[in-house]
Amino acid sequence: MRNGTILAIDDDEDILQLVSGALKSHGFEVITAKTGQEGLSLASTQNPDLIILDIELPDNDGIQVCQEIRRSNLAPIIFLTVRNAETDVVLGLGVGADNYMTKPFSIPELVARVEATLRREKIYAERKKSHKVIEIGELTIDLSAHEAHKSGQSIDLTPTEFQLLKTLAEHTGQALSRDQLLDTVWQLKADDVYTRTVDVHIGRLRKKIEDDPKRPRYIVTVPGLGYKMRS
């Protein structure tokens, strides 16, 4: 029984074979692409459960590929790249990626991140069997349908953004540290890069739910700690 379908996009054949072999040994089906254009085509036609994407591709920049995928596909995206500057991490997360790993990388860690991400997706699907809705101001968060609305209008959220919104909403009025959010949403331990991941996703989420992201009504910053959802 397959655990899910993974699309790996990288122009390095050795990397593709390494990633593909490791994931297949853990029960995943893996499809590969060596160019951005081929990756976009497979993302559209094969409907993968998760996408592993390099930034430096021969035809298209991986950042552009990620943006294009996000226009029609909400599958989680993990960047796997040699670019390790904080600005690159922030940019990658800012355009819609859910996670970011740098080369050289640990195969066990990559597999663990893939499994953790897809485990969250499975939990979302199972929760459709029950029905729970959280209402905060003009926001309506349907936990069973994995949907969010503002003033009746659907909000287009990635799985990670929804999990982040859900976590904050379930603890309305309670300050949550970045470490707590990393552990709950990403199943990661804190370090400087991962902590920045929280800030980037909060920024993206604010743009989608706030009237004025610079003066948030819902997700407010708790100085020196993290964030909280205001009731």
Rank of each mutant, 00 (worst) to 15 (best):
E68P: 11
G4D: 02
K122G: 05
D179P: 09
L118W: 05
N47Y: 09
T195L: 14
H149K: 10
H146R: 14
I51F: 04
S231G: 10
K132V: 00
A43L: 08
S20T: 09
R204F: 07
K24S: 07
K34L: 13
A112D: 03
D192E: 11
L182S: 06
D12V: 05
T32H: 04
D10W: 06
Y218A: 01
I78A: 02
E147Q: 14
L91V: 11
Y100I: 03
T102P: 07
V82Y: 10
K228A: 07
K122P: 00
K208S: 06
L205D: 11
T195R: 13
T195Q: 15
R215G: 00
T167V: 14
E56F: 00
N84S: 08
I6N: 01
L118V: 05
E121M: 11
D211Y: 09
P216K: 04
G96P: 13
I51C: 04
F162I: 01
R120G: 02
D88F: 03
Q17M: 12
Q180E: 14
L157A: 06
A148R: 06
K129Y: 00
I202T: 07
A97D: 08
L91Y: 12
L42Q: 14
V198M: 06
A112Y: 02
V185Y: 08
E56K: 08
L16I: 12
K122E: 11
Y194H: 11
I51K: 05
I209L: 01
V193L: 09
E29N: 10
T45Y: 11
Q187Y: 06
I202W: 11
Q187I: 01
R70W: 08
E147K: 15
F105N: 03
N73R: 15
I51N: 03
N60E: 09
W186H: 08
N47L: 10
P108D: 03
G224M: 12
D10Y: 05
T117C: 04
V19D: 00
S72A: 11
E86R: 09
I9V: 15
L7N: 04
I51Y: 03
A190Y: 15
A148N: 11
P104H: 03
Q64K: 13
R71Q: 15
L16T: 09
T158D: 14
L110H: 02
Q67R: 15
E121N: 11
V220W: 07
T81D: 05
L143D: 12
V185Q: 05
T87A: 06
V111F: 01
V220A: 07
D12L: 00
Q64V: 09
L42C: 07
S151K: 13
L181W: 10
L225N: 12
G36L: 14
F28D: 01
P216T: 03
A148W: 13
Q17I: 11
F79W: 05
V95P: 14
Q153M: 10
Q187G: 00
D98Q: 10
K122A: 04
I78Q: 01
V114Q: 01
M101E: 02
A145L: 13
P104N: 03
L165Y: 13
I63F: 07
I52C: 03
L205M: 04
I31R: 08
Y227V: 02
N60Y: 10
R196Q: 08
